[in-house]
Amino acid sequence: MKIGQPEKFIIDGKRLDGRKPDEMREVKIQAGVLKRADGSALVEWGGNKVIAACYGPREVHPRHLAKSDKAILRCTYNMAPFSVSDRKRPGPDRRSVEISKVTRLALEPVIFTNLYPRTTIDVFIEVLQANAGTRCTGITAASVALADAGIPMRDLVPACAAGKVGGEVVLDLFDIEDNYGEADLPVALIPKNNEITLLQMDGNFTKKEFEKALDLAIQGCMKIYELQKGALRERYGGE
């Protein structure tokens, strides 16, 4: 057993932070939080605080990256040095480069990039406080920021993870479960046709457990989707 690992993850049907297995942490989304960005969003998800900004479509620098038939999408995931317990050294590392990449691939399928040839749409995701699930929080924030910037898109993209702790499939891991649990499965979704745009997994699941976790994550995404829409309605003065 690793140092700090809890003996049990679920006691009397409740998880260590008091949630039920299929319960999500509290999530708050706010659109339009930055002045300079074309679109932005702040997502507070349990102990996570993530801000996303969208700039564009705008001219591409350096110019040779531009594509003549569509816009390029560039995503940058970055953690503030003070967002984690052991200070993170500033600048990109292998983990953030990978997350930036899967974030881009999670969002690209919904964006009508063909409308803006030779431009770039830049998305910046900053993790200000981390508590497991920052990539899902980031994708959730980024897709609200894209809509807030007026980028034409097929749908919003919510994201949510499911996992396994103490042998049980649970929704939305928090840090202790993430560090010492048995599996983690982040998923992003295009809700209107249930197409999955992000799927990563580490740990171990039986086939049956995986199916249950995937369904749980998809349910989580649908809840996030409603909150995303609510945040945009509020920003633009709808009901």
């Binding site: 300079r36 102990g47 040095p81 003070f82 967002s83 317990s85 200070r87 200000l128 406080q129």
Partner: peptide, 26 residues
């Protein structure tokens, strides 16, 4: 007290300028 992962933190707004500062100890 903006970020609980930092040992100390603050968010300052001067007009529309926003700066967040975190203190980490090692």
């Amino acid at each position: 007290g903006i970020s609980n992962k930092a040992e100390g933190s603050a968010l300052v707004r001067i007009g529309d300028t926003q700066v967040m500062v975190g203190v980490k100890l090692a």
